[in-house]
Amino acid sequence: MSKFENLTNEELDILREMGNIGVGNASTALATMLGRPINITVPEVYLLKFSNLDKVIKPDEIVVGTVVGLSTMDNDNSGFLYMIFPQDSPNKLAELLIGDSSDESMVESTIMEISNILASHFCDGIANMLDTVLIPTPPSYAKDYSVAVIDALLAQIADKTDNLIIFETDLVDQDNTVNIFLMLIPTEKFFEYIMQLLEMVK
């Protein structure tokens, strides 16, 4: 994966645009669901070694996180979408959607449902751009250290590569009360597929 280290600014821009389309789609769905505007930040693209993951996420922060696996039509694992709901965001989302956050299992169900919707719209967005089909698995839910939530998933791609590519975007509602971080973690193979398309664009 020599490509990894020497991406041009132009290629990074296209990757950012891909993240933008996915997250844009997801945020529209979330805004409709919540009945309030959702702003998104310009996606960051990080290329890093596994051992430097703590440069992107605070490893000792305890978060609510959900993960979906992504696969193509022929069942190829394409990577993971990791959705992080820091601090009060899960409770705020439950209050906005069902008017109550006192029951933890209801908060969990709310987060699962939101993750489902974010993931399917995110996948539609980038799959359209890439002219493929991406199918998300149902989400898995955990509340733990931000790294502990995903290390079992990272282990699945760690055998092939030491390099991680992460797209990170922040979804924020108008009052700044709800924050969601989305991270797309593609497999080496899916990343190469994306890069091939970039070659064709140039």
Binding site: P138, S140, A152, L153
Partner: peptide
């Protein structure tokens, strides 16, 4: 070696 996910929707192969 923990298994963090309560719901095993994905085949994580009990990596822990």
């Amino acid at each position: 070696g923990a298994q963090i996910f309560k719901h095993m929707n994905m085949n994580l192969l009990k990596i822990g």
